[in-house]
Design a protein around this nucleic acid. Structure first.
Lengths: 117, 117
DNA sequence: ACCGTATTCAACCAAGAGGTTGACAGCGAT
DNA sequence: ATCGCTGTCAACCTCTTGGTTGAATACGGT
């Protein structure tokens, strides 16, 4: 896996974890609170949180015996940054191809004004 | 894994595959061309492409014995859609919290004009 | 000092991911 | 017809992942 981005994508490549992120977007929550909706042991939830934490998507402060989990939303920008870069690049390439095809169509039936030779 | 989004995130949770997507953003390429930069068997590359294809990120048309691979960039929007939704939600919550804290500070040292009672 | 609550650690297991090698299939060119 | 090029299929291996259970830890309340 190696780099940062891989961990983030990996972390979100799981229904349960995406769901937890969605939940955390509405506010911090303890492990127990987070676990409640799922038919799954608390330990399993704890593991999921660890994955999210390792990806930097989440942080846990300690407060008495509870460990409120907090969404670190800035990390999401890392992803959109990556994605948008290539989406845009592909888009632009598509535009150029489109223009090129339009040109070729012009050459085949030359309705356009001002053509040379 | 179940749903669509999971497959897309999973597909991009790998250095090699993200690299391929980056490469494909500059234009279509055959399996051989894509494989060339990596120290890895052609079969492994083929597998990676299958993952990308199953995620809907890529399509392969057949052209003689070659199989040019094409990036389907629209799928990326699916991700940014998801991500942005929760990033924004978290952001807004943060703003409100910020405002609340400002209010509390006001209450503690009431320098402000027009205070009641 | 002890109890209950909240969470993690450790060992284990089945299934999946990413890689390998070897055999096979599709198609153009000679 | 068969050769060479391009790519996939199949079987196999190893490491990781997502889950389990049982024991341990950390801390507040009584």
């Amino acid at each position: 896996m190696a780099d940062r981005l891989s961990h983030v994508f990996q972390a979100l490549a799981d229904d349960t974890r995406r769901d937890m992120v969605a939940r955390l977007a509405t506010g911090d929550a303890t492990v127990g609170e987070l676990a409640e909706p799922y038919d799954m042991s608390l330990q399993a939830v704890s593991k999921h949180l660890r994955v999210l934490e390792d990806a930097g998507l989440v942080s846990r402060r300690k407060e008495a015996q509870k460990r409120p989990v907090h969404l670190e939303a800035e990390v999401l920008d890392l992803m959109t940054g990556w994605i948008e870069r290539y989406r845009r690049q592909a888009e632009e390439r598509f535009q150029r191809l489109d223009a090129l095809l339009a040109d070729m169509a012009d050459d085949e039936n030359p309705h356009h004004e001002g053509a040379a030779s």
